[in-house]
Design a protein around this nucleic acid. Structure first.
Lengths: 208, 208
DNA sequence: CGGCTGACTAAGCGCTTGCTCAGCATGGTG
DNA sequence: CACCATGCTGAGCAAGCGCTTAGTCAGCCG
């Protein structure tokens, strides 16, 4: 509810955004419902009612209930990958860049936890072609983290025995935030990000 | 499939286990289905067929589909809590005990990943009374970890700024293993446990 | 103004769902 | 032998599902 609205995930470039406002409302309602009850427990009537329409109106804007999920999942994954790439590409050494990645990755999963839940826990409900697309994006995110860890090891800033396991642990920590974080959590997303950044750097053997 | 069968979660004390074999088969089939497709996407026909029976036979052994889920979730949580308590209660200092907890907690979520998925990701589908019971068990697990961290800080073995956040991170790492671990994962559950134990100790500021 | 278009609804179709029930085979007991 | 409890099946019910269809209506263009 107070989490980042879905509309923030779509590019708002002038002219590029011709989607009718009703389609956004449906998307937002779908995110909320899928996150709370899961894809299969959500009915098209739930989504349509929450968006203030009749069930039939949904099919004017989307081909199916699964198409809604696919759109949410793809946009969510694309946004996450962009966030990680931007954080990793900034200035500084590997440790500084890793801290930035974890801070933002974690904060995103806390702030956009409803989208995050759909993105991370409704993969199995995706149609096969949408799944393939999304799986590639997930691999890219993991690779970005792995590359950063390798850079840190090469620079002598990290001490890691198994890069893949460490990369798994780092992304895993962030992803799981979307499972347990609630609006009643005591830490603000940014504060949680800072703390997780600290924990991860120590985990990677960086002198902090 | 090659993950720990559900039967291992029930006590096999002589005399205490009067459950008919067919009930175990249903339980096992339900775990497999719930883990793969989720509770709501699984039909009673799926479960019954996988157990080699007609749909009606299910209702001789369990009151409802939800009762099957409740049984799985409660047994799974109870087993996890027992595992954590046993690992934490063994000999050694806080660091040694924490290493043991993480090793076993992690290995369990890898080995029993199908049960783990149901336990961690189908909570929302539980009837209210079963949910309350299970939520209490989850709190106990988290408290066990928090207490151990506090002991480590008091003994000067850990250096942690926020105990609750650190405890969240530790349990979070283990839980998320059940999401991504597959039988094709390169590391055996025990090896993954050892690596995660190492990472967590460094995260907690222990000199290792 | 008439004609058209695109967003929307009321009604409901075909199908699947969780669950029920009457009845059948089996095996132990008197 | 009769009797019955146990474990199960085949058939099927009521409810709810995703999605379709026929039709309404506001707004724009000439």
């Amino acid at each position: 509810m107070t989490s980042t609205p879905i509309a923030d995930l779509w590019p708002t470039m002038p002219g590029a955004d011709t989607r009718p406002e009703a389609a956004y409302r449906l998307l937002q309602a779908a995110v909320e419902s899928f996150a709370e009850r899961g894809f299969h427990a959500t009915t098209t009537r739930d989504i349509a009612t929450a968006a203030g329409m009749s069930p039939a109106a949904l099919y004017i804007h989307y081909q199916s209930k699964a198409a809604l999920l696919a759109e949410i999942s793809q946009a969510g994954h694309a946004a996450t990958l962009a966030l990680v790439r931007a954080a990793a590409a900034g200035g500084g050494g590997p440790a500084e860049r890793m801290r930035r990645v974890v801070e933002q990755f974690t904060a995103w999963h806390a702030r956009a936890r409803t989208v995050g839940r759909v993105v991370n826990y409704e993969l199995h409900a995706l149609p096969e072609d949408a799944y393939a697309l999304v799986a590639a994006l997930r691999l890219d995110i993991e690779r970005e983290v792995s590359t950063l860890i390798e850079a840190g090891v090469a620079a002598g800033e990290f001490e890691v025995s198994e890069v893949r396991t460490a990369a798994r642990a780092v992304t895993s920590l962030g992803i799981d935030v979307s499972r347990w974080y609630t609006e009643r959590s005591s830490e603000a997303p940014e504060e949680l990000g800072r703390r997780y950044g600290e924990l991860v750097l120590r985990m990677l053997g960086a002198r902090v």
